[in-house]
């Protein structure tokens, strides 16, 4: 069994990834819907649509980096 402190670090890491993923999801939802709408009218917008849609993805990456840093503390 791990001690409570390590357990809390684990919870912290999970929250870091989980919440940032949720946030990215919410952000991408709106952008993605608008991008698909624009693409339906003009197919050439695929490139721009893709870029705009994936911009919030960085949020998850930040969350992941923080999670890894937290896990290093635990180890």
């Amino acid at each position: 069994m791990v001690d409570v402190g390590t357990g809390l670090l684990g919870v912290g890491a999970a929250l870091s990834v989980g919440l940032s993923a949720l946030a990215a999801g919410i952000a991408e939802k709106s952008i993605g819907a608008a991008a698909i709408g624009a693409m339906a009218e003009k197919e050439e917008l695929f490139g721009k649509g893709l870029i705009l849609t994936v911009i919030p993805e960085s949020l998850v990456i930040f969350g992941l980096v923080i999670a890894i840093m937290i896990m290093q503390m635990a180890a």
Binding site: E57, S58, V60, I61, F62, L64, V65
Partner: peptide
């Protein structure tokens, strides 16, 4: 900085 951290996806 955020641009660089974005490359963490290579690992992820």
């Amino acid at each position: 900085l955020s641009n660089i951290l974005s490359y963490a996806r290579l690992m992820a």
